[in-house]
Structures are given as C-alpha cells and as structure tokens.
Design a binder for these strands. Structure first.
Lengths: 137, 137
DNA sequence: CTTACATCCGTACTTGGGTACGGAGTCAAC
DNA sequence: GTTGACTCCGTACCCAAGTACGGATGTAAG
C-alpha cells in the first residue's frame, strides 16, 4: 500500500509542495535534501518523505529559521547520539520559547485592536512596539 | 522628567540597540524610521522612541516578518482609521496564529526529545518534520 | 521515429537585507 | 586652531535564498 513510493519526478514534487523546481535543486546543493539515485542516465524519482521534508523547510522558514538552522533541526529528525542531539535541541528550544512569548504578545495586542475596532471606536492606535519590549531591566 | 529626550546621536542609538550605524541609515531610507531634523548643518538627534522602534523591527524580524510586513505593523502602532487598521490587523493576526501553532508543536517536540535524552536513551530521533505537518486533508 | 515536453546540470542573474568605503563637514578638548 | 572621533551622504559591495537560461539528454504519445 505504501510501497507506492518514488513516483514523483522533480517537477511533480515541486508543484506538490508549492515551490519552484529550481528551489528543489537548490536545497539539494545545500544538502538539505538528498539527491535520489539516478538510474543510468535516467530521471530521478522522489518520495513522499522528500515532499514532507521540503514542506518542513518552508514551515520552519516562516518561523524565522535560516536554512542553516533548519539543517541542524533536520539532523535531529534523522536521529543521532543523544548527547549531541540534546545539545542542539536545547539551543533551539530556548530560541523557540523566546519567539513564542513575542508571538503571544503580538497576538493579544492585535486581537485587542480588533476588539476595540468592533466596539466602534473610530480611530485607534495599537501599542505593538510596546508589546515586544522584552528588555526587563 | 521625560524631556530628557533627543540625546542620542546615530552612533549611540546604534550601539544602544545593538545594530550597525549603517543599518539605522538603511531603515531610514526604507521609511521604517524617521530621519530627525538636522539643525542647519549640524548633527541629528534621536529619541528613546526611535530606539524602541528599531528594537521592534529586530524582534519582528526574528519572528519571520519581512521589512515590508513590519512597515505595515508599524503603521498600526502609529494610529489610523479603524476600518483600515482592522483590515491590516486581521491579516497579520491570522498569520501570527498559524505561526504560534507551528511554534508550539515545535516546542513540545523539542522538549520531548530532551526529556527522552535525560531518561538515558542512547540514541534518539526527533519527529520534527511530522510536528509541522499541518496539511489537514 | 519524430515531436513535444520534462529532466539534468552548470552558470549567471535577482532581490532583500544589510555592510563597507571615502571624502567632506562638525564638534569637543586640548 | 589643530587633532581625533564622529556624522553625513552617496555609491559600491556583500551574503542568503532563490530564479532564470540554455544546451544536451530522456521519455511518452501519436
């Protein structure tokens, strides 16, 4: 049933995940994605796993991670010595939690603005800048 | 008390917020930051408000927003017609909530990995890719 | 078996977000 | 009133993350 793998050409993979063919090839050059074996002068075939990987890259980028950071995260997914994994995970976890806090503050500030608006206030300001002033001195 | 404004030169502003002088000037060219009046051939002075604005820009960038999106967010902070503000806020709120979900999943996946490690497992994998598979079909 | 369309691969170009450079002006301290 | 550090401004350069180009090869349909 799930042996129906390897049916994707690069073009179909690209449209499936919503990126350019060149982007796939670019990720391969950057070692973010494997380059499937090429059957003697033939055409490479990709799996659903490859598609998931590209989607992950795109999602992580939306969250503000660089391709280099994403490279580390992907290594975690692949499995590795625990001590090393923990080291990487810890660094990223700290970052992720900091971003979560900022995003939560941004969320509530924006939600607040919308509520004020629906109350019928004509002109509004939205203290967004203040929302992200983390610098607790 | 708070009339002790405008004491920052561009260099002091830059070091205060931890960016390059050139970055400040770049943001001014991009209209993300006002260019304070220049007293007849003299030197521009910046306020704490300018510093907060630059910090906001940097924080928002970490959250994955582009300078163009940040430009919109800053307009909200400045106050505007409610209908227009609501429109902008709504778009960004949707985005922010989607990112929050992804980040939360990433957070719990990473936290989980760390816990498994501290339990003494030798080798671990971290289903990070799966964590961000949002595509609810 | 040829025609149309895709893949392959190398190289070149683009865009966003800065950095660096250099000559001229300013300002404070000696 | 000169020296040193800083500002001003324009222009040029840089890196990350793609995008585009184009000739050669592969492959499916008529």
């Amino acid at each position: 049933m799930d042996s129906q793998e390897s049916t994707l050409t690069i073009g179909r993979l690209a449209t499936a995940v919503g990126v350019n063919v060149e982007t796939i090839r670019f990720y391969q050059r950057k070692q973010l994605l494997r380059e499937p074996p090429r059957p003697l002068g033939g055409i490479r075939r990709y799996t659903e796993g490859d598609a998931a990987r590209v989607k992950f890259i795109k999602s992580a980028q939306r969250l503000g991670f660089s391709l280099e950071e994403i490279h580390h995260l992907l290594l975690l997914d692949e499995g590795m010595r625990c001590s090393k994994a923990a080291e990487i995970a810890e660094i990223h976890l700290t970052e992720v939690r900091a971003r979560l806090q900022d995003l939560e503050r941004m969320e509530s500030t924006l939600a607040n603005l919308l509520e004020k608006c629906s109350r019928g206030d004509k002109n509004v300001t939205c203290p967004l800048i203040a929302a992200l002033q983390t610098d607790v001195e």
